[in-house]
């Protein structure tokens, strides 16, 4: 996906990827702004706040990724861990 890939698939060209990022950013902004027009019913109060779902989605993903990363240090093993003769398999 560098300069030499101009003959690559149009989706993989840097220009396209840049454009996709811009479209993505615009969609994100619009989705939050749309809440000024569209009423989001909050069942528990807090979930009706402006941009709540956006922040909650982002932050919960951040938390899950960080938690998984931390857990990974404890749980990750080589792929042949179970083949090393320290287990049944």
């Amino acid at each position: 996906m560098n300069e030499s890939h101009h003959d690559d698939h149009w989706l993989a060209r840097p220009a396209t990827i840049k454009l996709l990022w811009r479209v993505f950013a615009a969609v994100l902004v619009l989705l939050v702004l749309a809440q000024a027009v569209i009423y989001v019913k909050g069942y528990f109060g807090v979930d009706g706040w402006f941009g709540f779902a956006a922040a909650y989605g982002f932050l919960s993903c951040l938390a899950m990724v960080l938690f998984a990363k931390a857990l990974g240090y404890v749980l990750k093993r080589d792929e042949d861990y179970y083949d090393d003769g320290n287990s049944d398999a």
Partner: peptide, 16 residues
């Protein structure tokens, strides 16, 4: 409202 809620939720997890 529900569609917007879930679109925000999903698109921002995409950003994440």
């Amino acid at each position: 409202g529900k569609v917007l809620f879930y679109l925000q939720l999903l698109m921002f997890s995409g950003l994440a």
